[in-house]
């Protein structure tokens, strides 16, 4: 432990602190992002690298991989989404409970990538709203962490009143 600031000293000494409700809520949310990896293609390999011991995204507070959308806060779309897969992705997104965030992992999820043809959806934002886009084919794990930190900043700023905010 390094130096504690005044508030932390108060908190650790059994004292009490005051803060804004939105801030503490955002702080709590951003370090416990449970994610649902929607892996279809190549980017899944880099997701595996990012998840495992070598890069280890648990350091950023997203250790829990949940394979049920109902327990997940964050949908991680890794890989190409084809028109055949599109209804599945939409269903998974709809099954997730609010608040929820979507990350488009890799060029195919962002824009269809190099597959500009009859079968591939040109970007998952044609199906569901996206919060963070990660470029790269496939992105390196470091790029993913960069995106994760950006998403955490966004989560921190979002207040408790998400319910009344219009999400399309």
């Amino acid at each position: 432990m390094g130096k504690l600031n005044k508030t932390e000293k108060l908190a650790t000494n059994g004292g009490w602190i005051t803060t804004k409700f939105n801030e503490v809520l955002g702080w709590g949310r951003k370090y416990s992002l449970w994610h649902y990896p929607f892996i279809t293609a190549c980017c899944g390999m880099e997701y595996m690298s990012a998840a495992c011991a070598h890069y280890d995204f648990d350091r950023f507070g997203m250790g829990w991989t949940r394979f049920t959308p109902r327990q997940a806060d964050m949908l991680l779309v890794c890989g190409t989404i084809t028109h055949k897969e599109a209804p599945v992705l939409k269903t998974v997104y709809d099954q997730m409970t609010e608040p929820k965030w979507v990350v488009a992992f890799g060029a195919c999820a962002v824009s269809g990538g190099i597959y500009d043809n009859y079968a591939v959806v040109q970007g998952i934002d044609r199906i569901i709203p996206v919060d963070v886009y990660i470029p790269g084919c496939p992105p390196r794990p470091e790029t993913f962490f960069d995106a994760l930190i950006k998403l955490q900043e966004k989560v921190q700023k979002e207040g408790h009143d998400w319910r009344w905010k219009k999400r399309t």
């Binding site: 028109h83 055949k84 599109a86 209804p87 939409k90 500009d116 043809n117 009859y118 079968a119 959806v121 934002d125 044609r126 199906i127 569901i128 709203p129 399309t168």
Partner: peptide, 16 residues
């Protein structure tokens, strides 16, 4: 004779 980019979506796509 099938065009390369002729897509036939299964669900309604969002407008950007």
């Amino acid at each position: 004779d099938y065009p390369l980019r002729k897509q036939q979506p299964r669900i309604r796509l969002r407008k950007l």
